[in-house]
């Protein structure tokens, strides 16, 4: 173990802003790249299904 306590881990030797800023930003960007296409697919499937139902009736 490099860090003696959780507080020390969070402090990152005084570089908390830079280290956690980097990891936080990465998390946001990578999550967005999953959430956006999944949401787009759901929207698209819904609108296609609606169109299909209308054309059948």
């Amino acid at each position: 173990m490099t860090f003696n306590s959780f507080a020390e881990f969070l402090a990152m030797g005084g570089y908390a802003f830079y280290v956690w800023g980097s990891y936080g930003l990465t998390l946001i960007v990578l999550l967005a790249n999953i959430i956006i296409p999944v949401w787009q697919r759901k929207q698209l499937l819904r609108s296609l299904a609606l169109k299909q139902q209308r054309s059948e009736s």
Binding site: M1, T2, F3, F9, M12, G13, G14, Y15, Y18, V19, S22, Y23, T26
Partner: peptide
């Protein structure tokens, strides 16, 4: 958690992993 701090850059080098 496991990797030691860098002898010159301290813990700031951990940005390397992303």
């Amino acid at each position: 958690v496991l990797a030691p701090p860098d002898y010159q850059q301290g813990d700031s080098y951990r940005i390397i992993y992303i």
